[in-house]
Every structure is written in structure tokens, then in C-alpha cells.
Design a protein around this nucleic acid. Structure first.
Lengths: 295, 295
DNA sequence: CTATAACCATAACAAAACTTTATCATAAAA
DNA sequence: TTTTATGATAAAGTTTTGTTATGGTTATAG
């Protein structure tokens, strides 16, 4: 740890080229300057100046140190200018959410970044638990999750509701779909597939449905935008949030089963309760809900 | 000037997340840590942490400061590693010399740089006085000049000798060239032209030559490698250092007048007497003379 | 060429800054 | 609720830092 005061004295000495005048400039006495330089040299174990009579020359190490101090001073100035700054349009916003939410909101984030070039938004798709962990560990500041935990450390705010849909190939349109039909068709799985399916099937096929393991697994894809492809091909059914279905580009190849007991999850914005989010998060907090609202 | 010790305490506190444990780690007591943080906050006039019961959260300013300290620590480490280093093959060499010398040695410097990529050589063409000034003001470390000054501050070392040549168009080859012939032909001027010409003509045309103003000026070029073009075209004569002539690519179009009284300048390597040059200058000091020796 | 003034280094002392001890208030844990 | 742990604050003690006093050396003036 280099003593900043000594560094400053050395810096001024180099610019002034004179111990006594340096002392005057720093409102101290000449021996103080001498001592600062000696101490610096002792600490770095290298000669900073070459004393020639009453004058001196910078050594190579001295020049190196001088340049270093100059740089540090600039950086410190930059810090002092920026540390109190809190702009809506500058800085990094870190956000975590599910893959489905990510694909839905990412275009909006990009257009915002395009508009405010000093703004950078880091979007990270993750599981609920992963998001909570990252917020707790200060890896990200804001999250969108589908469950509200009873934590005093975290602040939750409901922003949207995602309905789950049971998606079938279009050939089932206007038909009566029985549970055995589903069994025959088979399930297309994806990362949150089992969880979604269990909830939806339990509510809507009471008695018949016991466990997702009843179904033959007709496929698994881990890319959100490809989950619906096998369904469109007639290879199976799946359960997804409504807005993940909306963005599929061949909706006429799909059929969304009308449900007697609709199932949905609330979505919450999460951040640390005791950490006030900077201004640049305002827009996100205000608008994410809109982006997720299914028209 | 931010106190480095306080910064370090804050840095450790952020990593540890605990005042008491931070104190232990820093071999100090807990109140010390509290005070360091308070002082930093007072100095920067901004809250760095948000105290929540006995725990705390970093504020935005705190995060900014933490990142700043992290960077500074890295830089300080880099400094400590490099400040004692003195390699032959690393760092910046700054050199000043005349345009003639520059064109002669520049290819050698480039090939050296190509061999040692961490070496950077800054070559600056300038007048003798300009070079001396720059060395005195520490803008450059080394110079090649054609006069030795009686300065105690500077160290001169003779490294080469540049002969001056009177250059005529090839058509004068093997002819007796009289002074009136020169007057008729006219003088091609260049930055150091008058100085060179006065010295050479005074010595070799005693009685006849009075001043360079006797000559009609047939041209002026300020690019070294183009000075000899008008001479080759038969448009005039000029006076140049021998090694500036050697590099002209159509020597058969030129004729160098044999002189009764050869004129030459000694060339000196200059640097500050009290400033030991780093190792990376060794090669330059050793070899510049060779590059300037006319074979 | 000596005398004088300017300059930097060193040592001893004074002042300031810092660290610790002591104590209190509050929060987490039992 | 009681106990234990944690951090803040104030006052005392310690260390560090800066100043005064002094001396040696180098430049400048007479």
C-alpha cells in the first residue's frame, strides 16, 4: 500500500523540480518533502531521483512512478465525478429471468440500448433459484421470478401473470381431447416442462392424472424457440407459458386446448430490499410488466 | 487524495462482509474499521454502505468505489513488478537526430523493433538546438548532434564523422569546376543548406566565395530524400552530408566534386550526464556509430 | 577568491492522526 | 426473555507525521 500523500508530494516535486518550492506549494516545510521522498524510496526500495548537488534528475524508476501517479490521479478524478452520478441513461443494468421471459423482453431491451448508448443491459436466463442466488450474492440487481419467497432480505412486486397452455398439434382442433389421447400422443419435455405439466394436468384431469411419468416422453429440447416444433409436427403435446406460445411463428400448426381449470403463475420483480436501485433501473421496473402482458 | 489505508479497509470489508472479521484480518480492532469507513464516506460525501441492523448492503457508490480500488490494486502491483525492471529488450527509447541521420538509421531501428516487440523506439528529427532542448526538458533521452556544447549537465560522446560533399549533376564528371561555373548553375537549398554550403565553400573557394547570397537559388526541398532530384536533373548544385548522398538511388546522375579542403562535422551522442540511461539504450549507443559510418 | 545566500539532509521535538480501550445500543440467537 | 454478538461512539494512549533547529554543500555576488 503506497501512501497517497507521499506520492502526491513526489508528483509535485517532479513538476516543480525543487524541494523548497514544492514545500511552499504544499503548505509544508522543506524537511517534510525530503522525508516523503526518502520514505517512498525506502518503501519501493529503489532510487527515484538522482541527487546532483542541490539539484536532481529523475531516475528511470522515478519516471515510471511519476507516470503511474499521473494515471492514478486521473482515475481518482473520474471516480469522484462518477461516484455521485445516478443517471437514468447511463450504466449497467443486470437482470435475470426465465428463458421464456428473456425471449419476450429482449427485443425491448435492445431497442432501449440502441436509444441510450451509455446504457448497457445484461440479461441472464436462469431458474428461479438461480436468480434468487445471484441477487443475494450481488451478481445481478434485478430479477423476474415466478415465486415469492418469505425473505426479509428480498423485495417482491407482482408485475404479470403467466397462464399455462396445453399445446397440441393443429389436427386436434375442435376435437374433444381425452386424457387417454394425451397418453397416446406423448409429452415433449423442456427445462421447466415437468413442473408446468404436473400443475396443469393435476387441476384439469383430476383422478386420471397421477404423475408425469405416466407419459411416454416424445422429445426434449432445451432451446425455447424450438420446443414447439415437435408439437407442430404432430409428435406430442407440451405445457408452456402463454407468451412462449404467442411467439411461435407457425401458430396455425398448433392447437391450444381450452381448459376447464385455467392455471397460471404470478410473475414478480425481485431485488434486494435494502439496496435502493439506481435510476437507470426505473424504466425496467416500470415497463417489464407491459412487455409480459399478453394482449 | 484518498487515503490508501482506508480504501484497503473498505475493500476488505466488502469482501468479508463483516466489521469484526475485517478487523481481525487486518490485525486491528473493530472500531478502527468503523472509523475508516466513516472517514471515507465523509471524504467522498456519499454513503458507501447501507447499514441494516448489524449487517450491511453496498450502495451503488460503494460498488463503484470497490471496483475502483480493485483496479488500483492491480495497477499498483503492475507498478511494483515493473519499477525495478530494466531490460534490454523492453520499453521506450526516445531519440532525436537530424533528418539526414534519421533516414540513415531508421531502417536499423525498425528491424530491431521487429525483433523485440516489447521495444518501442521513438525517433524524432530535429535541429541540434531542438534536440538539446528536448533532452534538457526530459522529452527525449538520447540525441545525435553535430556540436559539442560546454555543458556540465550533458554528456557528449563522439560517434561518427559526417563529411560534406558538393554535389553536381553527372554532366560535370571529370571536368574542372570553377567557382563561376557554380554561380551559373545555382544552389538547391534545403533546411541545413546554407550552413553546410557556407562552411564548405569558404574553405574551398577562398577569396572568391563571400556569401551564399551570391548564388541564385535554383530550388528548395524540405524532404531529405528529394533534395538530390533537382541536382540529378541538372538544375543546380547542393551541399550535403556524405551519407545523405549515399542513399540516393540514382548515383550515376550525380557527381561529387573532389575537394582540396575536405570539410566534415563530428557527430556526438548526447544524453544527460547525471541520468543513467536504462539498459534498453545499450544497443543504440553501441550501434548508431556503425550505422553512420560511411563504408 | 572569499563571503554570502540558497538549498537539501538529518535529528530532535511538537503536533496531528490514528488505534485502541471502554462503553453503549441494538440486533440476532438461545 | 435473556443472552450473546455486533457495530457505533467517546476518550485515552500510541504511532506517525510534520516542524524547528542545525549543519554541510553548492551556487552566486562582491
Amino acid at each position: 500500500m503506497l501512501n497517497n500523500k507521499w506520492l502526491h508530494t513526489f508528483y509535485v516535486l517532479v513538476e516543480v523540480g525543487h524541494f523548497t518550492k514544492t514545500a511552499e506549494k504544499l503548505f509544508m516545510t522543506q524537511p517534510g518533502v525530503s522525508q516523503h521522498i526518502s520514505k517512498l524510496e525506502a518503501q519501493l526500495d529503489v532510487a527515484l531521483i538522482n541527487r546532483i548537488g542541490k539539484s536532481f534528475e529523475l531516475t528511470e524508476a522515478g519516471k515510471t512512478l511519476y507516470d503511474f501517479i499521473k494515471l492514478q490521479k486521473q482515475q481518482e478524478q473520474t471516480l469522484k465525478n462518477s461516484i455521485k452520478e445516478d443517471s437514468e441513461y447511463k450504466g449497467m443494468c443486470s437482470l435475470g429471468c426465465s428463458g421464456a421471459v428473456a425471449t419476450l423482453i429482449y427485443p425491448h431491451l435492445l431497442s432501449r440500448q440502441a436509444q441510450y448508448l451509455d446504457l448497457s443491459i445484461h440479461l441472464q436466463a436462469d431458474s428461479n433459484q438461480g436468480i434468487i442466488d445471484k441477487i443475494t450474492k450481488n451478481k445481478i440487481d434485478l430479477g423476474v421470478v415466478s415465486q415469492q419467497l418469505p425473505s426479509t432480505e428480498l423485495h417482491f412486486e407482482k408485475i404479470a401473470n403467466e397462464s399455462f397452455c396445453l399445446i397440441l398439434p393443429a389436427s386436434y382442433k375442435d376435437k374433444q381431447v381425452s386424457f387417454s389421447e394425451l397418453l397416446r400422443l406423448g409429452f415433449i419435455n423442456h427445462p421447466d416442462g415437468h413442473q408446468y405439466a404436473e400443475r396443469l394436468l393435476t387441476a384439469n384431469f383430476k383422478g386420471e392424472f397421477k404423475s408425469i411419468t405416466q407419459f411416454k416422453q416424445s422429445g426434449f429440447v432445451n432451446q425455447l424457440n424450438q420446443i414447439l416444433l415437435p408439437v407442430a409436427f404432430g409428435l406430442g403435446f407440451t405445457v408452456l407459458p402463454e407468451f412462449a406460445v404467442k411467439q411461435f411463428n407457425e401458430p396455425n400448426k398448433l392447437f391450444t386446448l381450452p381448459l376447464a381449470h385455467p392455471i397460471s403463475d404470478d410473475l414478480y420483480l425481485v431485488h434486494k430490499a435494502n439496496k435502493e436501485l439506481p435510476q437507470r433501473y426505473n424504466w425496467l421496473r416500470l415497463n417489464i410488466g407491459k412487455f409480459l402482458a399478453v394482449s
